[in-house]
Write a protein that binds this DNA or RNA. Structure first.
Lengths: 211, 211
DNA sequence: GTCTAAATCAAACGTTTGTTTTAAGCGACT
DNA sequence: AGTCGCTTAAAACAAACGTTTGATTTAGAC
């Protein structure tokens, strides 16, 4: 008998296809065919197509948010130890770096990242809902810490700037593999660390910009 | 007889539903029912579901890009007249302002904007393709002008920073009506001009940030 | 070897999908 | 009146959808 990794194979295939073609545009038949398992396996192991999406999200987002949460703890601890406000760059690095460096460590990470990018795209819908259930606490915490790091900035302003920052990151996540438009003489190939630093430079400048 | 505005009614209904639920998640029956026209009207007037999407995109994107193009012409003309590089803020204002101010003048603009946000979300797929066919020249031109405005910046760096900037804008476009996460004491209500200025402040600071 | 529970399988379920077909309605012209 | 072109209407189409079923196979316990 083939190893009983049917659930794993389904998660991998679904992650890839959901990311590439979208949730609604991907049929269970395409998924089960790619995973080389029976059509009924999805409903047997997960219950429904939507539950499969839920599992795909949770599998990568859970550990990722645990890492992020731990690194935010560090930033808060360092600030408390020295009795000062949290360091803005450390804060956003804690949020951004685990995300972008996924592609270095995890296999299939680019698919997950692209899927998250999609989740943020649809105002309503299954993908968004599943994603937000896990993401909202993280966003709120990042917002409050950012306000602490920039105490002179109005909260309302920082809210919108954080909106912009999240936009940059999510756009980067989904367009990572291939940029839809490449000017002459530009290559999209870049290593993760450089990209992280570039995004941090950009984001911090925007967050701290004078008004 | 009801006025023969069937095409118009279809465009309006499709724009709204595509934006709200996504292209694949929206059926022709839902569209024609919302438009109060016959099911066959879509295929009669447009040829196919995808052609209807194409028409929805073109209807708003064509005029919008014409405005943007004209404003970029202005920026270029001013720069040439004074024999200097284009002004960076004027450049990006020319690109951003017509987009955000759509919601003030056009009805149903928020739906179109949300649809565009979705178009950028899916790496492959119909929406993206239709959108990119009309957008690529505009992006390339904006990139070249930005390079002219910041001649000391490496093109590769500016390419990525422009990527970040587009991400902020597209995220703003689709999350405009309702932010998925609202911290305590924050309201998402804001007037268009203030929002435009905030986005410009943020974006310019990022584009010009030291390395 | 026998039994049991978990996993897989092929097949079919009833719906819904985008599209096509056929017929009818309507205004404008000769 | 009659006929032509354009538009709508209802019905039907094959195909694909997510899901369910009941039988079959597998792995491990006794």
């Amino acid at each position: 008998m083939r190893p009983p990794d049917t659930k794993q194979r389904l998660l991998d295939a679904a992650e890839q296809l959901f990311a590439l073609r979208g949730f609604h545009a991907t049929s269970l038949r395409a998924i089960t065919q790619a995973a080389e398992v029976n059509l009924a396996a999805v409903n047997y192991h997960f219950g429904s197509k939507e539950a499969l999406l839920d599992a795909v999200m949770a599998r990568s987002l859970g550990p990722l948010n645990q890492v992020r949460s731990g690194r935010l703890d560090e930033v808060e601890r360092d600030a408390a130890a020295e009795n000062r406000a949290p360091d803005l760059r450390a804060l956003w690095r804690a949020f951004v770096e685990p995300t972008l460096s996924m592609r270095r460590h995890e296999t299939g990470a680019e698919h997950f990242l692209s899927l998250v990018g999609q989740a943020l795209a649809q105002p309503h819908g299954a993908v968004m809902e599943v994603f937000m259930r896990q993401m909202t606490p993280m966003f709120l915490r990042l917002f409050e810490l950012t306000c602490l790091a920039l105490p002179e900035m109005p909260r309302q302003l920082l809210f919108w700037r954080m909106h912009f920052a999240v936009g940059s990151l999510s756009h980067l996540m989904r367009c990572n593999d291939q940029s839809p438009v490449l000017p002459a003489g530009i290559t999209a190939e870049i290593d993760v660390d450089t990209l992280t630093d570039m995004l941090l430079d950009y984001t911090l400048a925007g967050l701290e910009a004078p008004r």
